[in-house]
């Protein structure tokens, strides 16, 4: 061992998640064999039994930290990785399972399991960056596989990845969609959500539900005010709107907590 590998070694790790983001790699049907030609797939249990020992040049991490064991495991992975990239909403903001963070987790465990004491789980679902240094966070629930390919090729070529940080609205406008919010009054998260999915929801005549998480400097207060004014949305509805697949991201968390406090007044 210790032999220098000619190809960069790629590892794929799973934490609490639905497996969808790592499935995106296998969903690159046209590119998969080329990926396997460009990198050595050194650890990817969803796809292969073969395990190549670390260290790894690139680690892709899917899922959030929800158990004491995983909170330890992520440090070992960080130590074994040159570059650590989180893929998807769970790894980047805690995911949908971070809804537990707003309540007493024991109530949820009791709701699901008849013998709660067998279940070992943390009170909060947290993103990877709360535990270790992360080199790049790829957003989305799920990620856009084309952005993942861009990211991997950028790292292989030592350049900066081209991944948008602006609002979904820009993507939507470029597609020539009719604005679902202006034209139909739909409660669209587009103005505060990071682009990258290809403005899918508005393209299917539905409002964006924010699965790529907050864009840089989102004005959630202004958006909520618009919804309240034009759609007569209740505080409970506003809480639910921000409490989705990126509920624990700072911007959406602050927004939902602000509206929740209003409901309790």
């Amino acid at each position: 061992m210790g032999r220098k590998h000619p190809k960069p070694k790629l590892a794929v790790w799973k934490f609490a998640s639905c497996d969808g983001c790592q499935l995106s790699i296998l969903d690159c049907e046209d590119e998969l064999l080329d990926i396997a030609g460009a990198v050595e797939i050194a650890y990817f249990p969803e796809a292969t039994r073969a395990v190549v020992k670390g260290p790894y040049d690139i680690s892709l991490v899917e899922g959030s930290v929800t158990t004491p064991h995983d909170a330890e495991r992520i440090h070992k992975i960080r130590r074994a990785s040159t570059v650590l990239i989180t893929i998807g909403a769970c790894a980047t903001t805690g995911g949908i399972q971070a809804l537990r963070n707003f309540t007493e987790v024991a109530d949820y465990v009791r709701a699901v399991y008849p013998t709660p004491q067998y279940i070992e789980t943390l009170s909060k679902s947290t993103p990877i960056t709360d535990h270790v240094f992360v080199d790049f966070e790829l957003r989305g629930c799920p990620i856009n596989k084309l952005l993942l390919l861009e990211l991997i090729s950028a790292y292989l070529n030592g350049r900066k990845p081209v991944v948008p940080e602006y609002a979904l609205c820009l993507e939507c406008k470029r597609l020539g969609n009719t604005c679902v919010m202006v034209a139909h009054g739909a409660p669209c998260m587009g103005p505060v959500t990071q682009a990258g999915c290809g403005a899918l929801c508005p393209s299917y005549n539905r409002p964006c539900y924010g699965c790529f998480g907050p864009k840089r400097t989102p004005n959630t207060g202004s958006l909520a005010e618009w919804w309240r004014h034009h759609r007569d949305m209740s505080e409970e509805e506003l809480v639910r709107a921000f409490r989705g697949f990126n509920a624990w991201s700072e911007a959406f968390r602050r927004a939902s907590e602000a509206h929740e406090q209003t409901t309790m007044k």
Binding site: T66, I96, Q97, Y108, A111, Y113, R240
Partner: peptide, 21 residues
């Protein structure tokens, strides 16, 4: 597999949200 407790946090959500959640 870490438990994600879906049946817990589905409580209190709107019925139209269930397919996406």
């Amino acid at each position: 597999e870490p438990p994600r407790l879906f049946e817990g946090f589905l409580r209190g959500r709107h019925f139209t949200e269930a397919p996406d959640i």
